[in-house]
Design a protein around this nucleic acid. Sequence first.
DNA 1: TAAATTGCTATACAAATGTATAGCTAAATA
DNA 2: TATTTAGCTATACATTTGTATAGCAATTTA
Lengths: 215, 215
Amino acid sequence: MVKKENLTQKQSDVLREIYEFIAANSYSPSVRDIAQVLGFSSPKGAGDHLAVLEKKGYIQKNSSARSIRLTEKSLWYLGVQNPSLEKNVDYLPLLGSIAAGKPIFTEENIQEYVPISAQIMGKTKGQFLLKVKGDSMSGDHIIDGDTLVVKTQNTAENGNIVVALVNNGAVVKRFYKHDDGVIELRSSNPLYEPIVAEDNLMIQGRVIAIYRNIF
Amino acid sequence: MVKKENLTQKQSDVLREIYEFIAANSYSPSVRDIAQVLGFSSPKGAGDHLAVLEKKGYIQKNSSARSIRLTEKSLWYLGVQNPSLEKNVDYLPLLGSIAAGKPIFTEENIQEYVPISAQIMGKTKGQFLLKVKGDSMSGDHIIDGDTLVVKTQNTAENGNIVVALVNNGAVVKRFYKHDDGVIELRSSNPLYEPIVAEDNLMIQGRVIAIYRNIF
DNA sequence: TAAATTGCTATACAAATGTATAGCTAAATA
DNA sequence: TATTTAGCTATACATTTGTATAGCAATTTA
């Protein structure tokens, strides 16, 4: 499961209501609009939530009327697309170097939110981006600097290219589970030895797409 | 020339200002915001223009603060894209099988327009997408089914991966020009013979990025 | 256990905002 | 020529709106 604990349930409700309002009206709700839908009798309740949401980076606003804007972070958090007219773009978090022992979707791990075409990508719920380091998967034509689109999942089928967390951090490998239960993570470059099952091996997701810039 | 006579110059100015404001702020201007930029000393001047623009179908609004929305008609009129999307997404044509002897950017060639993240792609002017067929470039880790992002240009430097039009259609190859002027298009898979210069060889563009779906 | 945070109610207020009234000039139209 | 339309100025006003003050209860954190 992806960790989304950065917001409380109430804060999440408020954020979702803002999204719903903008999706329906194409302009931002007022503080009182939010309070009314959430059942608050005072604008202050909603106003306090807005302040928290802004501090945590989920919205932007200023002192003008109806000036709330959803950030890319909130679009990813809600698992929704940009509410403004076109329905083609999703936002995926680009993760930096993933350290072992910590949840993968922590604040420090997320470098930026990248808009991705839903049209060529399909549904992007629970996906993230990861930069490839090294040439251990060159046999699968995945090379250093490539950006991977990873679908979050904690199991895999034999032969899947997965992102896994082992002792020394995150690795990209082909997944194989033997009959005796031993898990093997194979590089597709023969120069690299396979990693054999360890207790603390955790599958983070499956690679479903690759992006590469050629300069 | 497309007729754009449905609006007067002043009305057009007001409409453009609304667009500029939304593009800059991601929320609608107030009546007074518009009046100020246009140099009116009264909100009524701007308000009258808004009423006309709404009656003519260029905007929608209600009595709420900052509730102006641009219609598709106005986006077309101004020759712009949705201001909230324009920052992040460009549309690139995905070309089908390119036949020799015809211009590359014909209507029949364009299968669809794919929204592409400008953030990971950079400037996309004059670019197009092309599906790879065959494994002749597998040595460069470009394989069958990959989608190429191609920058339109009719020259290339040695070693560039280019899209070229030869007798039998479009090919993706590495470009080399010898001292004697002979042009050689090399596959990176040794199983394929190089193509040597022909009179009707035309460079269409250079490959600047690759996208691949893994199922 | 003490302090901070969350999540509100109730009330108030100044500023922002949409809209109305009245009227003016210049240009276009009938 | 008379009338309408476009394009404003000046002023006013009722809401809408963001925000502040004061306070309370429950929960979480230190």
